[in-house]
Simulated assay, not measured.
Amino acid sequence: MNKSLSRSEMLISLGFLFMLVCAVGAFFFGVEVGKNRTTTQLEASKESTDKKPAAGTLQQQDLVSFYHTVFMPYREFQTQWIEVVENANTRQTTDLPTELKRLASLSQKTFNEISAVSMPVSTVLDQSQQQLLKSISSFQTVSKRLANSKEDISVTQILAAMRKDQDYKLAVSKSLQGQQSYYNGMVQWARTIKPDLAQVKDMPSTMKTSIWKSLPLIVKNKLSADLITASGSVVNYYPQDLTSRIDEFISSGQADKLKYDLVGPISELLIDTKAVRSGDFKSSMVSQYAKQLLPQLPFFLTDES
């Protein structure tokens, strides 16, 4: 029998061997490509990790988390404190010691809630949290002390003793400082987006209205927090409410009419005459501040947002 291969059979065999060699080569080439891609992805992942924000840098989610877990619980307590004091001042409260006992209990609850929150270390938010906790602790101390006042002491006398109380003064001071730190955190966040943002560390006593008008809103709000701190009283409105009233006072021509060319005296006038109210900012937000850079916090959002 003739076992030699025909020409066509040989071509088929050679073709099969060629395809086999190509298949094996393609396999090993694919393995090498996959290895290289995996290495590239790992290096990219490492590079991405290395480029994470440095410790102490604030992200928007940090500001939002702080708002819901620290700042607003504190503000809710502060609002009730202000309401009790105002009612006592207007003689709407006849049993102030009982109200102070309730506030002492509420302060403990609020303290426990806020102290359980973990904030990014070495940031102004961490600093703000500690300041607000000290404020609550001091409010609790003074409320407990005055709640045990003698029965023959009048509401007026209790209020007078409160204003002189060192723990009360510390509570107010730490409250205002805590707010300042939070608004400073907003400015720090804004600088991660706009590095060339105006640098104004603290509210200068000599700041002219012409300079104020040129500042971005988020910087003005921090300076308004400084102005509220300088007033030395806890209030039921926010720094942005004061900002909007200062802006309105200047833009309406009132500042020129009264020859006020410094922001400080304008702020004092508005605060002392109780011309600032909670909600002033939102009423003018759409018309005056629509294009301003702000973090997505509830008190900066319109009803349509």
Rank of each mutant, 00 (worst) to 15 (best):
A225E: 11
V263F: 03
L258I: 06
L227H: 07
K220D: 05
D272C: 00
E248T: 12
E248G: 09
W212G: 04
E248V: 01
E248A: 14
I218Q: 02
T243K: 08
I246V: 14
K213Y: 04
K257C: 04
L269A: 13
D272S: 14
I218P: 01
K259Q: 15
G264H: 01
G264K: 11
I246Y: 02
K257E: 12
G232M: 13
L242Q: 09
V219L: 06
S251W: 10
I271W: 04
E248W: 06
L262R: 13
L258Y: 11
M207P: 00
N236I: 07
S251F: 11
T243P: 00
I246R: 02
S267V: 03
A225I: 08
E268I: 02
K257S: 15
L227R: 14
V235K: 14
L217G: 03
P239T: 09
K213F: 03
K259I: 08
V263D: 04
S214G: 02
Y260D: 12
L270M: 09
V219P: 01
W212M: 04
K208T: 08
Y238T: 07
T206C: 01
P265I: 04
K208V: 01
G264V: 11
P216A: 12
D241H: 03
L242S: 08
N221C: 14
I228L: 07
S231A: 15
L242K: 07
E248H: 10
A225F: 10
T243D: 12
S267F: 01
D226R: 01
I266R: 00
L270Q: 08
V234Y: 02
D247V: 05
D241A: 05
K259Y: 09
D247C: 06
I218C: 05
F249W: 11
W212L: 06
M207C: 01
Y260Q: 13
V234F: 06
I228A: 03
S233L: 10
S210M: 02
Y237L: 08
L242M: 09
T229R: 15
I271N: 04
N221D: 15
F249E: 11
K257R: 15
I228Q: 07
V219D: 06
K222P: 03
V234N: 13
N221I: 15
G264C: 00
T206L: 09
S252W: 01
T229G: 14
S233A: 14
D226K: 01
S267G: 15
L242P: 05
D241R: 02
V219F: 02
G253T: 10
G232E: 13
T209C: 02
Y237N: 10
K259P: 00
R245K: 15
D241L: 02
Y238A: 09
M207L: 02
K213L: 12
K222C: 07
P216R: 11
K259M: 09
G232F: 11
Q240D: 08
Q254I: 09
A230S: 09
S214V: 02
L227I: 11
S224A: 15
D247F: 05
A230C: 00
T229H: 14
D226W: 03
E268L: 03
L262V: 03
D256L: 12
A255V: 05
I211Q: 10
L223N: 08
L270I: 09
Q254E: 13
S210Q: 11
G232N: 12
S267Q: 05
G253I: 08
Y237M: 07
I266M: 00
Q240P: 00
L217T: 10
Y237H: 12
P216H: 10
